[in-house]
Design a protein around this nucleic acid. Structure first.
Length: 417
RNA sequence: GCGGUCGUGGCGAAGUGGCUAACGCAUCGGAUUGUGGCUCCGACAUUCGGGGGUUCAAUUCCCCUCGAUCGCCCCA
């Protein structure tokens, strides 16, 4: 094997890429209805943006970034997630000057250096949305509803929403201390991962697959929320209920990015091996300020496109197949070939899906191609037809055949849709 | 970063320390002078991811390497 794609990347070939187009189309359509506008930001940014935005101690920044020096000795990184870049663009372009709040969406590749497995790649794709300029809990709910609506529009079944409130940084600091106090006595008995998580991110210990059963009486962040945070969280839930979006409270839900405040949520679905998260997000009221912008609140999510595709496949959801060819031109002889090249162009100009043979094979082989392409018509052009100014049109489904004047072919095909 | 499994033609998939590496699908050619889908006949891997080693002899055994895949950590 001479050249291979880098580990964790994929070639999306014809046949597969149509599914991506469809998913993106549907997601865009839902965003349009929710009045979100697309934003496109660079695929690489200054490394510092992610360090400050995503969090210095997160796994993403500590060990998963594709970081490189450019020729001007700047440290740049391929974006490992979408929010930081959008936040930067929002601040840099002073979108906060807009009298209305900014409702944005994006789609594109993200990069993380990790060992690939089912549903996880080094280059993967996210569809995300971010809203800036309001702390209204109605927006938290709208953003969750948007993600949920996208999954539904695409045809995913059994998507569940899990939500939690991680409060404010101050609340989290208090909670973190309480949690460590709670865990300390049993620290020696916990698994090795949990022992390291105890210092790094004690909230994650509660999520441990090995020791989870021990923490039934662990303190919950929700109990430490102040009145304002609690009220916010309550409202988010009541809005979701009003919209009839099924959600589950998960007081142990922790996200891997540092910037979340108040609402954190994940979309889950089965069917990707050991992984069940297909999207996640939350509110990030301090992030815009963190990357140098004004103190503007935000809330958003990211959906994993690969994971959507995987769950769709697991659920046996069939996406519409590629439409067939209208006409496949079969030319016999040099004169016919010349006319067929011209005719194909003419028919395409008339809006028809047309192709012809370019391998110079015999008629039988060309007919086989027409059949493989599921063409509605095979149009045969040889010396006889050329002499009479007609073309033999065969309806492949029925085998019927008729001579049509060359200039009438486009109309004939259109009239018999 | 760590661990399991795997790597044979365009695809799927047998196989054995030793003569010409099954089979299925696809493809191409023929039966059919200019007509597809069905049928029949024929063709299609000097080679078994790459490198090294053991051996008289390796696709088959060993080592390394690259890749795929699944899992851990973490996450989309």
């Amino acid at each position: 094997m001479s050249m291979q794609k880098p580990t964790g990347t994929q070639d999306l070939l014809p046949g597969e890429v149509e599914k991506w187009q469809l998913i993106e189309e549907k997601a865009r359509d839902v965003c349009r209805r929710f009045h979100y506008k697309e934003i496109r930001t660079p695929i690489f940014e200054h490394t510092e943006l992610f360090v400050r935005g995503v969090g210095e101690t997160t796994d993403i920044v500590e060990k998963e970034m594709y970081t490189f020096q450019d020729k001007g000795n700047r440290s740049l990184s391929l974006r490992p997630e979408g929010t930081a870049g959008v936040v930067r663009a929002y601040a840099e372009n002073k979108l906060y000057g807009d009298p209305d709040i900014s409702k944005l969406y994006y789609v594109g590749p993200m990069f993380r250096y990790e060992r690939p497995q089912a549903g996880r790649y080094r280059q993967f794709h996210q569809f995300g949305a971010e809203v800036f300029g309001s702390t209204d809990p109605g927006l938290d709910a709208e953003v969750i509803a948007l993600g949920y609506a996208i999954y539904k529009e695409i045809g995913l079944r059994d998507v569940t929403v899990e939500i939690n409130s991680v409060g404010t940084p101050e609340i989290r600091a208090v909670y973190r201390t309480k949690l460590q106090e709670y865990l300390k006595p049993m620290l020696g008995e916990l698994c090795r991962d949990c022992q390291s998580r105890y210092e790094r991110n004690p909230m994650r210990v509660l999520d441990c697959k090995v020791d989870q059963h021990r923490f039934a009486d662990a303190p919950s962040v929700i109990d430490y929320l102040d009145d304002e945070a609690a009220a916010h969280f309550t409202k988010v839930q009541s809005y979701l209920t009003a919209m009839d979006i099924p959600f589950r409270l998960n007081p142990r839900l922790v996200r891997g990015l540092d910037y979340y405040t108040h609402t954190a949520f994940e979309f889950k679905a089965a069917g990707i091996g050991a992984i069940d998260t297909i999207g996640g997000g939350g509110r990030y009221n301090g992030l815009v300020g963190e990357v140098g912008g004004p103190d503007q609140p935000g809330v958003g999510f990211g959906l994993g496109l690969e994971r959507i595709l995987l769950v769709l496949a697991a659920q046996g959801v069939e996406l519409p197949a590629e439409p067939q060819l209208d006409v496949y031109l079969i030319a016999l002889g040099d004169a016919a070939e010349a006319e067929a090249v011209r005719l194909a162009y003419e028919l395409r100009g008339a809006g028809l899906k047309v192709d012809k043979d370019y391998t110079g094979r015999k008629m039988k082989a060309q007919m086989k191609s027409a059949d493989r392409f599921a063409a509605r018509y095979a149009a045969i052009l040889g010396d006889d037809e050329l002499a009479q100014g007609v073309i033999t049109v065969k309806t492949l489904a029925t085998g019927e055949q008729t001579a049509v004047p060359l200039g009438e072919l486009a109309n004939y095909v259109k009239a018999n849709q």
